[in-house]
């Protein structure tokens, strides 16, 4: 489903070249929940941005659902991103002027979905994250956890096959973090493929697969048999 072969990313300035990713190889199958860990500056976010087509890469091949991303135009990448990928950010990245309904509506508008269908999806997604009653509120009226749930609802509204989460619980307290994590697991159970960047080893253990990135390369990965559900069961015991 997602196939990266020898991906490299070099940031160049007048004085130095920085290799954010080098010979990065990864294959992600449909329905997986992958946690990406690694020290700060190791290239986790760069990988996520390239996976989400928010950044271009310097070398290698990246295929998403069999489509060679490197051959797409900017508009083509935007369209693919809009149709297949949902983003969840550490800082939520809600648009402050828009209420929750309108925030969730943003990706649907760019996809050209009709008003009635948009309404149906938005209401369903806000209900799913438990904020159906607060659709007219603006982000500033919500707690951090609630804002992250709105961001998840926004990511879900497009019914993406891929959910890319960059430290989705990084700005939340432990209770909120747990709620958000449970929500992501539920979404994964419903069929979405999730790649989550995190610093939290406990959260990483709840994923099916754990990839560690160091100096722009995958240096290790662990496969947790049974995946997230087993982790929850273990934690509960």
């Amino acid at each position: 489903m997602l196939n990266m072969t020898n991906i490299s990313k070099v940031y160049r300035s007048e004085m130095v070249q920085t290799h954010a990713l080098r010979d990065f190889n990864l294959q992600v199958n449909e329905g997986e929940f992958i946690a990406v860990t690694g020290p700060s500056g190791s290239g986790k976010t760069t990988f996520l941005n390239i996976a989400g087509m928010l950044e271009t890469y310097t070398g290698g091949t990246y295929e998403l659902d069999g489509i060679n991303v490197g051959k797409l135009t900017d508009n083509g990448r935007a369209e693919l991103r809009n149709q297949k990928i949902g983003f969840i950010f550490q800082g939520f990245n809600l648009i402050p002027d828009l209420n929750l309904y309108e925030n969730v509506e943003v990706p649907l508008r760019y996809r050209g979905i009709k008003t009635a269908e948009r309404k149906r999806r938005i209401e369903r997604c806000l209900e799913q994250v438990g904020l159906g009653a607060r659709a007219k509120h603006v982000p500033a009226q919500l707690s951090g956890g609630q804002q992250q749930r709105v961001a998840i609802a926004r990511a879900l509204a497009g019914e993406p096959r891929f959910l890319l989460a960059d430290e989705p619980t990084g700005n939340l307290d432990s209770l909120m973090a747990r709620q958000v994590m449970e929500l992501l697991e539920s979404i994964n159970k419903d069929g979405a493929t999730i790649i989550m960047v995190t610093h939290d080893p406990e959260l990483a253990r709840r994923a099916q697969r754990n990839i560690q990135v160091v100096d722009g390369q995958i240096c290790d990965f662990k496969l947790y048999q049974g995946g997230a559900e087993q982790q929850r069961a273990t934690a509960g015991a």
Partner: peptide, 10 residues
Amino acid sequence: GVRRALGASK
């Protein structure tokens, strides 16, 4: 940046 991430083209 957010809009672009959510699928807005240039």
